[in-house]
Design a binder for these strands. Structure first.
Lengths: 341, 341
DNA sequence: GTGAAAGCGCTAACAG
DNA sequence: CTGTTAGCGCTTTCAC
């Protein structure tokens, strides 16, 4: 019995009438134990409600069963779902999950957060590279620790699971262009770096089609920031289609457009990105690209596990978000566009 | 140097030319060290990039700096925000956070999850008692471990932080009644137990006003489950006001009502609960009760910390959600209601 | 197969 | 103030 009142391995050994290493053997299955003693040990474990100490185990075996997730945020839709995916996969493999939030890319803050985390006995680290904070954090992880980056720009030296946002954004923009829009305006969410997959894909489609490339409009993560942008967009008669960096911003933009007295998709088509669970319920239901964040998380954990076990056959995993066409997009109205007004 | 390539405390001691305990002393600040040696040690720590091992520390000092959060879900709005609140408060106090998800109240699953968690050296546990899984998990935590329950029914023997949902639901129902509605229908989200604060407050207001108490309608956590309910509600001419267990369900219900050809709030008023960030952007903007989950999480962590340090002056903390009146509610239309049709 | 002995990295007495 | 001595709870040699 230790001070916390928990039975220890030697309590179990005493009760079973065997040595401590024997108990350890039935616990780990590392070596064979006679059925008789094994049974004795198991009974003692059950009687005492014994639970091995992860701290002691990690200390001596150097095989921690904990992974850390480093994220810039835990409650926004994409982040939360990705974390959920990692957690589910980790739990299935017997790993416990630790969460560290890095709210900004501020060097001190990143250092402090990483420092606190690395103090733990960790099998590996998963970094959500969705924002500058994630990018900064990734750079601070010591090289000897297995790491996987989730999303973001391609990392040369790190295992990485991504969603091919650029391809999906390109497809979505193509679809809008195919509807007859002369060009597509773009509202961006805060990018993790200078380059942003969604913006890149959008630009690529426009360029390929020989369409005008309007200046990018920047929103914050707060959906309300889309309202003013929506109003401004509505005031410009050249605007007939808008592609937003995520569904929440699209919802704000739609509200701004509606408040300005225009209709969606009658006057302006609006598309989002992510397929937030509420996108489908919106009025009108939102056209978007479905990002399967939970699967991203699962794939990421698999890559991390491969790195931990050194069984990495591939270190990169990508998946393409699916276009989901609903009612917020339609062919342009004849009254609007560069010709009209 | 250990096998993982990390410097250990004895590497630091060697490099600084002092004994291991002296290094420990500068690390913990437990005893005074001469400025000269302290400087030597600090230099060695910096040179080596030394980081103390939390496993070894927890093992010997019995003061783990980790808390576990047990939750039935991590990505739904209320859960995610609460977790975020706990994490922020914990980080500020130097605690690391571990997350354990218990997806169902299934005994085996709860046991497995708790088991894995308790293996870690833990200072305490915060349980999100939002659902049956949380309730089941709370019952399994060994008594000697500091615990705080977040939300849910009052716990006699546990520190607990709650949001007074019953009072807020009552206020919201009163408001609807005050608008002139004969009664208010209620769509419930899955309750954590038989009693549910939101439902209780709604019933209390109705009873106090001497209004009819219509049967409760049950939705799942999926916002889409509200659609069919909304359609059914629209088909009943006696329905003029609906109070939904959360904003997401309200959005589904509103869509069902709209699809049935009725208008909100013209024909039916709809109110939600929580004040999801998107509630304000909805069409029409949703009347709801704002639940400050992040603060709930912070208060919960404070209570847990008090329990850990045994400085608990109070073991219960409650806060009342604020009514947020927007455009989805209005006086009843003369064409509907028990008199009309 | 099984026990005795050693030691993971660290902090807590205990001398001095 | 500082070094020496123990020992946390567990796994890993290494004999037998």
């Amino acid at each position: 019995m230790n001070r916390a009142g928990n039975p220890t391995i030697s309590d179990v050994a005493a009760r079973a009438g065997v040595s401590v290493p024997t108990v350890s053997r039935v616990l780990t299955g590392a070596a064979r134990v006679s059925p008789a003693k094994r049974e004795l040990v198991e009974a003692a474990i059950a009687d005492l409600g014994y639970r091995p100490s992860a701290a002691a185990r990690a200390l001596v075996s150097r095989k921690p069963q904990t992974i850390a997730i480093i994220a810039g945020n835990t409650s926004r839709y994409g982040y939360a779902e990705t974390i959920r995916g990692i957690e589910i996969a980790a739990r299935a493999e017997g790993y416990t999950v630790m969460i560290t939030v890095v709210e900004s890319a501020d060097e001190d803050e990143v250092d402090r957060a990483i420092e606190a985390t690395l103090t733990q006995p960790l099998a590996g680290v998963a970094v959500l590279k969705f924002d500058p904070a994630g990018v900064a954090a990734l750079g601070k992880i010591p090289g000897h620790l297995p790491v996987v980056a989730l999303s973001g720009v391609r990392e040369p030296d790190t295992a990485q699971a991504v969603l091919d946002e650029a391809a999906a954004a390109e497809e979505l923009t193509d679809y809008l262009l195919g509807l007859g829009h002369r060009t597509v305006h773009h509202v961006r969410v805060p990018p993790s770096r200078k380059v942003d997959g969604r913006t890149t894909g959008w630009r690529r489609a426009l360029r390929r089609a020989g369409a005008d490339i309007p200046p990018v409009l920047d929103a914050t993560w707060d959906p309300k920031s889309g309202i003013a942008i929506g109003r401004a967009l509505a005031a410009d008669p050249a605007v007939t289609a808008v592609f937003c960096g995520n569904d929440e911003i699209a919802m704000g933009v739609m509200r701004g457009i509606t408040e300005a007295g225009l209709r969606i998709p009658g006057d302006i088509s609006v598309a989002g990105f992510d397929d937030n669970p509420l996108a489908e319920l919106w009025t009108p239901p939102l056209t978007t690209a479905r990002q399967d964040f939970a699967t991203l998380g699962r794939r990421g954990f698999q890559l991390l596990l491969d790195a931990v076990n050194d069984t990495a056959d591939r270190r990169y995993s990508t998946e393409r978000p699916q276009l989901v066409i609903r009612d917020s997009t339609a062919p342009p109205s004849p009254e609007r566009g560069p010709a009209g007004a």
